[in-house]
């Protein structure tokens, strides 16, 4: 089985999918028009929005080595890797570890310090809000780069909207200071252990978290060549 996934013509074949994917929402209709009669029939279309699911081994490329080393290093510390790494996704040539939030700092420290891993550079954190992913609404995504080995991996952590807490990585990667403040500012994710988690872009007394999906974009309709053009978030969107 595994020889099927050996690199062929220098290009690794995509790894087989371990699960069907993660449903994060449902899309209905086709043309974004919800008012008025539906004459096409496409208005009744219902499709789930599915993100790539967990991948089974082998992952291909250097991913297997990174996963082996990480699991080994976590075991050495007396941690069951399955508890820390919820799932591993290989998609579009990128490796993503979904980490349980309580183990994030330990995993990041291991990734940074283990000589075989050596991910010295964290490129910050990016928040993503999936309001329909119940219990996992807020995602924090970290990209770690190893200059020693020339590798790049992604860590993903989730937190429910009701308890938007994620441990801070500032003690491991001081560069995340401003990045975590930015993600807090825009998503309301609270990074526990951050030295000074305050707003960074928005004014200090701003209310709400602008990058969340339920926060409106705002804007006013404008007149163009005699017609009223609605604000961008009021325009037709093609679902």
């Amino acid at each position: 089985m595994s020889e099927n996934h050996e690199p062929e013509n220098g290009r690794p074949l995509p790894a087989p999918r371990g699960s069907a994917g993660e449903v994060i929402g449902v899309r209905t209709g086709m043309f974004g028009a919800n008012d008025g009669g539906d004459t096409s029939g496409y208005g009744g279309l219902v499709r789930p929005v599915v993100l790539p699911g967990a991948t089974a081994r082998p992952y291909g490329s250097y991913f297997d080595e990174v996963a082996d080393e990480l699991e080994g290093a976590l075991e050495e510390q007396g941690l069951v890797p399955e508890n820390a790494i919820e799932k591993t996704v290989v998609d579009r040539g990128e490796l993503t570890f979904h980490i349980a939030r309580e183990h994030l700092v330990r995993v990041a420290r291991t990734l940074r310090d283990d000589p075989a891993l050596r991910f010295e550079l964290c490129t910050g954190v990016s928040g993503v809000h999936f309001p329909h992913d119940k219990g996992r609404e807020l995602h924090a995504v970290y990209h770690l780069r190893s200059i020693t080995h020339g590798r790049l991996i992604r860590l993903e952590v989730t937190a429910p909207d009701a308890d938007p807490h994620v441990p801070s990585l500032v003690e491991v990667y001081p560069t995340n200071d401003w990045h975590e403040r930015e993600t807090y500012d825009f998503f309301g994710l609270i990074f526990d252990g951050h030295p000074a988690l305050t707003r960074i872009m928005m004014p200090d007394d701003w209310q709400g978290f602008p990058q969340r999906k339920d926060y409106p974009l705002g804007g006013i309709p404008v007149e163009y060549k005699g017609a009223q053009i609605p604000a961008p978030d009021q325009r037709r969107s093609y679902s």
């Binding site: 929005v49 998609d91 969107s237």
Partner: peptide
């Protein structure tokens, strides 16, 4: 649907774009 990260060496350093799609337009 999915996510991707692409980085280029800008004159100031690593400029990365983390892009997430839900399969929409």
């Amino acid at each position: 649907a999915g996510q991707a990260y692409a980085a280029v060496e800008s004159p100031k350093g690593e400029l990365g774009a983390h892009v997430v799609s839900d399969g929409g337009t």
